[in-house]
Amino acid sequence: MTLPESVVLAAYIEQAGALQGLPVAAAYRDGVLVHLTVSAQMAELVMDFVLPDEAGIASVFVP
């Protein structure tokens, strides 16, 4: 059985905050969950985009 994405992300918010010693206050959890959900959706769009083989690698700026 797969958990809903919102449950997984809510657990991630709690665990990541605890791991870093920066817990997210209850008043902000819903907003953080919304932003993390949107970010995950945007990342999925980027990761699903297939680059053509002839796409070149971007150069790296070195000052």
Rank of each mutant, 00 (worst) to 15 (best):
M42F: 08
F61V: 12
H35I: 06
A26C: 02
A55D: 08
A40C: 05
M1P: 08
S6C: 10
S39Y: 10
L3D: 12
L45D: 15
A43R: 10
P52M: 02
A10P: 08
P4N: 08
G17A: 04
H35T: 11
R29A: 02
A16I: 07
T2F: 12
P63S: 07
L36M: 01
L45W: 11
V38H: 06
E54W: 10
M47K: 15
E54N: 11
I13V: 07
Y12M: 02
L19Q: 15
E54D: 15
L19P: 06
G21S: 05
L3C: 05
H35N: 11
V32I: 09
V32M: 04
G56A: 15
M1G: 13
M47G: 06
R29L: 01
A26T: 05
A27I: 03
S59K: 13
S6P: 14
A55E: 08
T37K: 01
D30W: 00
Q15L: 09
A25S: 01
E14N: 07
L22H: 08
M1E: 14
G31R: 03
Q15P: 03
L19W: 13
P52F: 04
G21L: 04
A43M: 05
T37H: 02
E14I: 11
V50D: 15
V7P: 12
A16P: 11
S59C: 09
G21F: 04
R29H: 01
L22S: 13
A58L: 14
L19F: 14
E44R: 13
A11C: 11
A55S: 06
M47H: 12
A40R: 06
M1L: 09
Q20L: 15
V24Y: 00
E54G: 06
A26V: 03
E44K: 09
H35D: 13
A25M: 02
A26G: 03
G17R: 01
Y12Q: 05
Q41S: 08
P52S: 10
L33Q: 01
Q41A: 09
Q20G: 14
L51F: 11
A43Q: 10
Y28N: 09
M42L: 10
L9A: 01
I57R: 15
